[in-house]
Nucleic acid binder design. Structure first.
Lengths: 152, 152
DNA sequence: AAGTATTAGGTGTATATACATATATTTGTA
DNA sequence: TACAAATATATGTATATACACCTAATACTT
């Protein structure tokens, strides 16, 4: 669907402005797809992101700050997301012995299990829904990274 | 910045998967840029979106449903966003005479004023920060629309 | 070593998303 | 016409974002 139709609006100031809005809309669209699957596992997008980050280092633990620095949305309130994951017993929280300010987080076996199941479903959905071929995906990645070139 | 650096992660399952994440991250990045400017005007991203939609039809009024259908994030809770805009006197809310179920919204002169000021600032920021040329922006638009091809 | 600055994480608040449900009004139909 | 179904919006709840501020622990400075 063209962005004009999605937003019922025909006017954009420039292709560059349209590209920004298109990117925002596409991200919303992808998130909706994701959430539809994650919901069946009792996960939110952000909780899923934290679990994936933890699996990346497993069996090592990670402190809250390390997790936060790997989050997509850099303002995520990681302690609160971890609250929910602890409640569901998908991660464990404990205080670091070396630096008592630090909270260290470990993903549990149950957490690894739900992550694997959810990931399998998401991968399937994405493979069947996202229609870019490899070359187009590479092009898109390059353009997005160019767009963000003046990143602080 | 490459996505790998932004997320401190080197592993993606495929260029397609990376493209999805890249899109989510870029959207977050664009939103942050936007919010930085909007904040100085006491506006949020969504409030700004509603004001722009209203200006598009001004001096006509719009009902809540019409506004909602033009929002980027289709699950936006438009009545609540309008609450905040009414409180700041940037829009007026009244009941439709024809269909008393409908609430019709009009942007005020103050609303148009703040919108113009904010838009001027945003356009400047974007023109100076987003580095794609016209051809690249068009390419990006095409790829994003292709990505969403299987849109319901 | 004492006192200050910095750092890590937790907590509070306003606004938003996502979604379920409630209420008022209108439409359609027997 | 009366009543059921549909529609428009508002409201409630859990979770998230964005950001300010608080507390405890560590590091730095003199």
């Amino acid at each position: 669907m063209k962005l004009e139709d999605a937003l019922k609006s025909g006017k954009f100031r420039s292709p560059q402005q349209k590209a920004s809005l298109n990117c925002l809309y596409t991200a919303w669209w992808i998130k909706s797809l994701l959430s539809k699957v994650l919901k069946t596992f009792g996960l939110t997008h952000e909780q899923y992101n934290v679990l994936r980050i933890l699996r990346g280092k497993h069996p090592e633990q990670m402190c809250v700050r390390d997790i936060a620095s790997r989050m997509m949305e850099k303002n995520s309130n990681v302690p609160r997301i971890i609250d929910r994951l602890v409640a569901k017993k998908w991660v464990k929280r404990s205080t670091s012995a070396i630096d008592k300010r630090e909270t260290v987080i470990t993903i549990t076996a149950a957490g690894l299990g739900i992550l694997e199941d959810a990931t399998k479903n998401i991968d399937q959905l994405f493979d069947s829904t996202l229609t870019l071929n490899e070359e187009e995906a590479n092009q898109l990645n390059n353009l997005l990274e160019k767009l963000r070139e003046k990143e602080e």
